[in-house]
Design a protein around this nucleic acid. Structure first.
Lengths: 256, 256
DNA sequence: GAGTGGTCTAGACCACGAC
DNA sequence: TCGTGGTCTAGACCACTCG
């Protein structure tokens, strides 16, 4: 599998092809170190810059990650959280865990979170709309980063109508057992229905930093609206997760 | 907004920061042409290679696309297909359209598809498992590429138990009005329940080519299982879509 | 200290697109 | 034809990691 200098296909792409194949067939397994840039350059008779571009290709496909001073490695498959609809089970809340915590514990990991912001603010436009708020109505916001075994998994922003959250633990540092949803139900709003909208995209530089995203990992943005027994929206949940750490699962009956 | 050569932050990243900001604040709107590599190099006193790296950053974030011989452009927002659960409505099928066709028409576009493969094959492992097939049982497969106004939107592979598909239009070139699901119901299997699993990732080079993906656009892989009135799985649907052309929406009641 | 990846320069040739 | 992006070379300095 030599390099064809006369080919239409760029040399760096040909090198990337060779390495990609070697990763796929197991020559380099998850976590394995690939040849160094200098080794690659020497082997294929190109400059180091060209060898680097081959690695850049693989990184853009999410196949490899480079570590300064150490080498380039095959990305190993991360633990995957399977988010299914029954993560909102009332039983789990009554057991003291929120949706995230119960998922993470099921996988044998330790959940934790860092509260980034809590308080009352002017809502972003899409939140005001989804919560059907009038002009000037404020919201309580809880912004947090969720961790599993100290690895950041999710950016999670919750918005509640200020009228609902006032005087509850929703505006305190610790929202108490069962998570925010337990507090919403304490306030007399039984959660009855959810709507989730999912989109995937590349992360902003800030998201990549906060979620410690390696290489070319997309993110999934999930916006959820929770409705109470009267059909009133009681929360908008805006979250961003690393796509390689999550899968989402939904079951539903055939509509008419 | 000059470049700080002494900063820890790489020069190409600083240039990327400036351009990113200019895109966000509307200086360069969707579809607008950014300065050429040479202009950028001259303006910031760097070589063209460094200017290129700044563009590579933005492309990796999905903000720009380059066009050989023309320039670098701000990516314009594509039309988004909102895939909601009621795309499987029996009414729509009876109106003669499959799920995809009815979605695309709703957006005022013209749906079409290219059948890549149709026939009977040995099923992939995950398909055999999801369809609960015994050893050696075959499946009917339909692989197609779905288009909206001739733009490829979705790779769609459907698998049906061979015993169900035999003798139906599912194994013919044209599956007839209402799509595959109408034929499944014709065969006496009323679609009762669906399960969808979603993951996002970077495309393989082949997917990027087939879906004509520009720059750093992730894909969403959706695997759906359709069950009939007896709870028997009757189809596995494996699809890949460009993440920037789709959003997915689910509504459900609070579980117990 | 030796090896690794990260950044940058200065220059070259090529292929594509618009005029 | 000319300007655009695409590829590649040859060499340099730096920061990080590991023994």
């Amino acid at each position: 599998m030599p390099i064809d200098q006369s080919s239409d296909r760029a040399v760096y792409k040909q090198i990337a092809d060779i390495l990609r194949e070697a990763i796929k067939d197991g020559t380099y397994g998850p976590g394995a170190r690939l040849p160094s840039e200098n080794e690659l350059a020497k082997k294929y008779g190109v400059t180091r810059v060209t060898a680097r571009r081959a690695f850049a290709e693989l990184a853009a496909e999410g196949l490899t990650v480079s570590q300064h001073g150490r080498g380039v490695f095959v990305r190993s498959a991360p633990v995957i959280i399977r988010a299914s609809m029954n993560r909102f089970s009332r039983k789990r809340r009554q057991a003291g865990d929120g949706a995230f915590a119960s998922e993470v514990k099921r996988l044998g990991m330790t959940p934790s979170q860092k509260l980034v912001e809590v308080g009352e603010i002017e809502p972003p436009g899409f939140v005001a709309e989804l919560l059907r708020l009038g002009d000037g109505e404020k919201v309580a916001v809880r912004r947090r980063i969720m961790f599993a075994d100290d690895v950041p998994m999710q950016l999670a922003d919750s918005y509640f109508p200020a009228s609902l959250a006032a005087g509850t633990k929703l505006v305190e540092q610790d929202s108490g057992p069962g998570g925010s949803y337990a507090r919403v139900e304490d306030a007399g709003h039984m959660l009855a229905r959810f709507r989730e909208d999912l989109t995937a995209r590349m992360p902003t530089p800030e998201e990549a930093r906060t979620l410690q995203l390696a290489g070319a990992v997309p993110v999934v943005q999930l916006v959820r609206v929770a409705y109470d027994q009267n059909g009133q929206p009681v929360e908008v949940f805006d979250s961003v997760v690393a796509a390689d750490k999550y899968s989402f699962s939904y079951e539903f009956d055939a509509p008419e």
